[in-house]
Amino acid sequence: MSAQLNHTIVWCRDKRVSAHYLAEILGLPAPEPFGPMLIVKLDNNVSLDFYDNDPPIASQHYAFLIGDDDFDQAFARLQARQQPWWADPGKQRPNEINDYGGGRRVYFDDPDGHLLEMMTQP
């Protein structure tokens, strides 16, 4: 048997704000509407389906494996927003880049408090 993740729903207060935020930071195509959702498509045919929900929004973690050049560009966009970032998921190492596994990774919050991670090595 073979199983692959196809999509997941991301609960948010404002799907337009949250979906466009992710697409902008990661340099992805603009979100596309599908029914009541906005869809952000990733390169591996997985999508994040942003769906409005009433607060409180339970924080989730989403990790994105990206190339070195893409990391540089996404990290520059994160810094341009003057958004806090951390080297660890516990948010104990602010303004640092983690080099675990020989790559680079940072953690940051999206507009709904979901903890996002960008990494260059799995």
Rank of each mutant, 00 (worst) to 15 (best):
G113F: 06
L5S: 12
E32A: 12
N6C: 11
F108E: 05
K41M: 09
V10Y: 09
F71T: 01
G27A: 04
Q83D: 00
L65I: 09
W86C: 06
P31N: 03
D68G: 02
D43F: 04
T120E: 08
A19I: 10
V17T: 15
I57L: 10
R105S: 15
G90Y: 04
A80R: 13
R104W: 08
K91P: 09
Q121V: 15
R77I: 14
T8H: 03
D112P: 15
G27I: 06
D112H: 07
F34W: 07
H61F: 11
H61E: 11
D72M: 13
C12T: 07
P55M: 02
P31S: 04
Q73A: 14
H7R: 14
R77E: 10
P56D: 09
L65R: 06
I39R: 14
S18L: 03
F75A: 00
Q82K: 14
A19R: 05
D69P: 08
L116A: 03
G102S: 08
V106D: 01
L22Q: 08
A58Q: 06
G101M: 13
P89A: 03
S18V: 03
I97F: 02
V106S: 03
M37G: 04
E32T: 15
I97N: 06
D54T: 12
D72F: 06
E96L: 11
D88C: 09
V17Q: 14
I57K: 03
D99L: 05
P29E: 13
M1F: 13
D109L: 15
P89E: 07
L42F: 00
E96K: 11
G101L: 15
P56E: 01
E96D: 05
R105N: 14
P94L: 07
R81W: 04
Q83Y: 01
Y100D: 08
Y100M: 12
A58C: 00
N45T: 06
L48F: 01
P36C: 07
D54N: 11
V40Q: 00
M1A: 15
A63E: 01
P84K: 04
Y100P: 12
E32Y: 06
D88V: 13
F50N: 02
R77S: 12
W11E: 04
H20F: 01
